[in-house]
């Protein structure tokens, strides 16, 4: 029998510090699928690819490499549920394995703290681990609460599949992996024109000019409404989730337009589909609900919540 697969669970910043429901949902889902998530003690910011990658490539690669060395020491691959963290860790791992000049510089910096990048591990995204390792069949077997009749729009985001020539994962113009994974929940996929455009948060744009970032988000929402709307939007990234979720409250402030979409990370969707109750991972703690003093549209999501 194959050995049980273990990953170092790279949390990053936004999942543990703003959307901890994603952290808990990931633990539930991976546990149900028999995949171990190990604590990655002392991991830092990935670091934020927008700001750090734009400021100084060598510092960006060194801090990312420091995180990679923690996993190398333990001998397990990394898994992350954030497109941003994936963009730093996967890309840095790839660049350091292919660019010897960069690797030499980075290792010179890492020597300062007694570490060395060796290039012995791989970086995975939750989506990869779920799709490739667990497999759709096994995931479908776990579904005890199918989202039958619930209309689901997708926001795959950018960095887990782009740049496609480097990531070699999915066709970024016609991606199917994320959709197939989400469809295991039994929800009905709703296509819309701007499904594949960026949420607007990345590349340090949200930090520089939140209003411009929100215009991207608004374009997506309007495009989805033009396609007939949906009961929920699913994303594989907490930064996209923040932008789409808390972004609705900000859009109301900046543009005086009200949108009410429930935004779920793919592991939150699967946790519910696997029969976990929303309270088990705190779905209602999303910032949108906290700030609006509202709660998910349980009925549209097809979830009976006894206490509420």
């Amino acid at each position: 029998m194959a050995k049980k697969k273990s990953f170092y669970h790279f949390l990053g910043c936004i999942i543990p510090h703003r959307y901890p429901s994603v952290e808990k949902a990931a633990k539930l889902v991976f546990n149900d699928l028999g995949i171990d998530l190990l604590d990655m003690d002392g991991a830092t910011c990935c670091p934020a690819p927008g700001v750090f990658g734009s400021f100084d490539r060598v510092t960006w690669a060194t801090i990312a490499a420091r995180n990679l060395t923690i996993a190398e020491a333990g001998g397990h691959p990394i898994v992350t549920g954030c497109n941003g963290c994936f963009a730093s860790l996967w890309d840095a791992n790839y660049e350091l394995k292919h660019d010897h000049e960069l690797r030499d510089k980075v290792n010179e910096n890492l020597a300062e703290i007694g570490r060395e990048f060796k290039g012995t591990i791989e970086v995975w995204h939750y989506v990869d681990a779920l799709y490739q390792l667990a497999g759709l069949e096994k995931i479908r077997d776990q579904v005890t609460r199918p989202f039958t009749g619930v209309r689901m729009a997708l926001h795959p985001g950018c960095h887990w599949m782009r740049p496609k020539i480097i990531k070699q994962k999915d066709d970024s113009e016609r991606p199917h992996i994320f959709r197939e994974l989400c469809e295991t929940s039994g929800a009905e996929y709703v296509p819309y024109k701007d499904e594949l455009i960026c949420c607007g948060a990345g590349g340090a744009v949200r930090t520089a000019d939140v209003k411009i970032a929100l215009e991207f988000t608004k374009q997506k929402f309007d495009s989805l409404i033009a396609a007939g709307g949906a009961d929920m939007i699913i994303t594989p990234c907490p930064f996209c989730e923040l932008q789409l979720d808390a972004g609705q409250v900000e859009i109301q402030k900046y543009f005086e337009q009200e949108y009410k979409f429930d935004i779920l990370h793919v592991v939150e969707l699967l946790a519910l589909a696997f029969g976990h109750e929303p309270d088990e991972f705190g779905l209602a703690t999303h910032l949108q609900y906290m700030q609006r003093k509202s709660e998910p549209a349980w009925e549209n999501l097809g979830i009976k919540v006894g206490e509420h």
């Binding site: 927008g50 782009r162 740049p163 607007g200 744009v205």
Partner: peptide
């Protein structure tokens, strides 16, 4: 500083 690094241009 308005590039969100979505890589759509790169892919196309």
């Amino acid at each position: 500083w308005y590039c969100t690094t979505c890589y759509t241009c790169t892919d196309r």
